[in-house]
């Protein structure tokens, strides 16, 4: 009776599963470090987590999830995450929700991102764009009207302007629209939107009339297929491309932004795992090479020192000595 046999066994498994729900109540507390949040900062945090895991040798366990900056904050305030990868600062209403739950979010800058404006490599007419020109392309009023390059500057060719950018769920889109159109989330709707930046890279690299924007790492990995456009700083008038140097020295303006790690100040005081992880993340000897490896723009050494002193003021004293040991472990492993 094969059918009966199969069903009987499955039933046994189900019973075991039900019994184990009761066992769940007895779950032991483990020192898990749970990180959640933005996909923008994810690759760097993953790299640090990998090194941290090697160094901790089972003493601490770290997991990283991606649920967006907003989702990360929600989990932090509910006590379901210990650290949040954030591509924007926490909003007042999010901070209130945290305060109500007794969580004190602390922002620690850990890296930089430059929203990079890119065109097709065969595009030889654009070398520098002002914020005003970007606004004329991307503003909600431009919808259906600004459709050819020649409309922006008369001497540019009369070919269609095809726009590519991340969709409205992305932090990069929020930041770009806030800077360029003056209002977060306000832009024309008739552009090719994708939450997958690789799609944008592909789109721009195949269309000579294309212009798009996304985070620096996607440009850095596709230099042969894309051309980065310099952006004019409205204050100094200088036209600069988003090279790591220009970003680090704050000369690529206004499209460069810091990326943060948010941590509960209480957890920082109480939990060894949180302190040790942040100490690693803010150790320039470790994070500078890691950032280069995964295509991020790190902060300057001074800025890392500043982040460390921020934590010290909040009551936590990161121990750089541990991080150095960790690096040695990481290299060995």
């Amino acid at each position: 009776m094969a059918g009966g046999f199969a069903f009987g066994r499955a039933g046994g498994l189900a019973a075991a599963a039900l019994a184990s729900i009761a066992a769940g109540a007895l779950r032991a507390e483990t020192d898990w470090l749970r990180i959640d949040g933005s996909s923008t900062l994810y690759p760097l945090t993953e790299a640090v987590a990998e090194e941290f895991q090697l160094w901790a040798r089972g003493r601490f366990r770290v997991t990283v999830a991606i649920s967006g900056t907003g989702g990360g904050f929600r989990r932090l305030c509910r006590g379901e995450a210990d650290l949040v990868n954030a591509s924007r600062p926490i909003r007042p209403e999010e901070e209130q929700a945290c305060a109500a739950a007794g969580v004190r979010p602390l922002a620690v800058p850990v890296a930089l991102d430059a929203v990079t404006v890119v065109v097709h490599p065969a595009n030889d007419w654009v070398d520098c764009l002002s914020v005003a020109e970007l606004r004329r392309m991307w503003a909600p009023e431009a919808q259906g009207r600004v459709t050819r390059w020649s409309q922006l500057r008369p001497k540019w060719p009369d070919i269609p302007l095809a726009l590519y950018g991340p969709g409205p769920d992305s932090g990069t889109y929020d930041y770009f629209t806030a800077v360029v159109t003056g209002k977060t989330g306000a832009s024309r709707g008739d552009y090719t939107a994708s939450e997958d930046d690789n799609v944008l890279v592909l789109g721009v690299s195949r269309d000579p009339g294309a212009l798009g924007f996304f985070g620096y790492p996607y440009y850095a990995q596709n230099r042969d297929r894309l051309k980065a456009v310099a952006v004019r700083d409205p204050e100094t008038g200088a036209c600069l491309t988003p090279s790591p140097d220009n970003v680090r020295t704050n000369r690529y303006r206004p499209l460069a932004r810091p990326l943060w790690l948010y941590v509960d100040a209480g957890a920082l005081e109480e939990r060894e795992a949180v302190r040790a992880f942040l100490a690693m993340y803010l150790d320039p000897e470790l994070v500078l090479p890691l950032a280069r490896e995964v295509g991020f723009i790190p902060l300057s050494r001074d800025a890392y020192a500043k982040s460390r002193s921020l934590l010290r003021k909040a009551g936590a004293v990161p121990r750089p000595g541990r991080a150095t040991e960790a690096e040695a472990q990481g290299r060995a492993g």
């Binding site: 075991a16 184990s20 769940g24 779950r27 895991q53 366990r61 997991t63 999830a65 991606i66």
Partner: peptide, 28 residues
């Protein structure tokens, strides 16, 4: 679901009685 996790769920088998363990069901 997690994107980075560098450890496995605990084993469903144990060397001592009752030899099975449901802890893995609650693992990330």
């Amino acid at each position: 679901a997690l994107s980075f996790i560098a450890f496995l769920p605990p084993s469903p088998l144990r060397p001592e009685p009752p030899y099975v363990d449901a802890e893995w069901l609650f693992s990330p």
